[in-house]
């Protein structure tokens, strides 16, 4: 890389980071403006509320939301893998999966939450998990089907030329080739799962960040609503930047 290119890259990098900081300041400015009307507590007030929260109060709710999201996402990932694998070989299952995706994709998280809470009861721990599974399924399933058909035909031919059977082709080429696409889909899917699980938690009484947000709202505790919302944002951003993004980057290097 030339010196000129390095300089240009550095300038672009600084510009990019500045853009990110400006986005944060923009959101803060909107918040401050909104709080000036007296309808919302300001950032200082909410920060004070956050600092007053006890760790033993926050951690179980965060863990509960994480548990709901990860379990729901795992269910949808597992179902997607099974349907994706079968779709790869059977047109009947391909049609079934495609239609199922379309139906699930057109059903909102709110509808799933209401139906599942009404069916399983407000105290049941299952609705948030199942809502996450239902909402993320179409995305993960679509990604799985396209990932499984993204294998390089040249590599498939190469393994066939040394005697690979269809099952070898699948486990040695098709599945490993799909890792980067599945990692990207999982990153988006887990982020979605976290945001969706709080909607379902809000309708039940089994705890979680969503439950705490709606409880604060019912108590007319605006600072509590915003403080728990900030906890959720921190959770989504932290998981994405510290865990999912590095994992996705690693998975993408897989095929190089």
């Amino acid at each position: 890389m030339t010196q000129g290119n390095k300089g240009a890259d550095r300038v672009q990098g600084i510009a990019f980071r500045t853009g990110r900081i400006l986005a944060g300041l923009f959101v803060l400015a909107i918040w401050i403006s909104a709080s000036a009307t007296g309808m919302l507590p300001g950032p200082v007030e909410v920060l004070a509320y956050l600092l007053s929260m006890r760790l033993e109060e926050v951690v179980p709710q965060v863990l509960k939301t994480l548990y709901n999201s990860i379990t729901g996402f795992s269910l949808s990932f597992l179902a997607s893998m099974v349907l994706g694998l079968l779709s790869h070989k059977l047109p009947l299952i391909r049609g079934f999966s495609e239609a199922l995706s379309e139906i699930f994709n057109s059903t909102s998280a709110l509808v799933w939450s209401l139906v599942l809470v009404a069916t399983l009861g407000v105290l049941s721990p299952l609705p948030p998990i199942l809502v996450v599974a239902a909402v993320t399924l179409p995305h993960i399933l679509t990604a799985t089907v396209s990932a499984l058909s993204s294998a390089d035909p040249g590599l498939l031919e190469a393994v066939r030329s040394v005697g690979a059977r269809p099952s070898d082709e699948f486990f040695e080429v098709i599945l490993p080739s799909s890792v980067p696409l599945l990692a990207s889909a999982s990153r988006v899917g887990l982020g979605t799962a976290l945001r969706i699980s709080v909607v379902a938690e809000a309708f039940g009484s089994s705890g979680g960040v969503g439950y705490m947000i709606i409880r604060s709202y019912n108590l007319a505790d605006a600072s509590g609503v915003l403080a728990w919302s900030l906890v959720l944002i921190a959770l989504v951003l932290g998981l994405d930047q510290l865990v999912l993004k590095p994992l996705e980057r690693r998975a993408k290097r897989w095929l190089e």
Binding site: E157, V159, E172
Partner: peptide
Amino acid sequence: GIVFQEDRLLPWKTLWENVALGLKY
């Protein structure tokens, strides 16, 4: 036996594992 122009080695396997593929199959 055929050797393709583009090598076509599986990128997630070491060269040893690539050489051993056919024997394993």
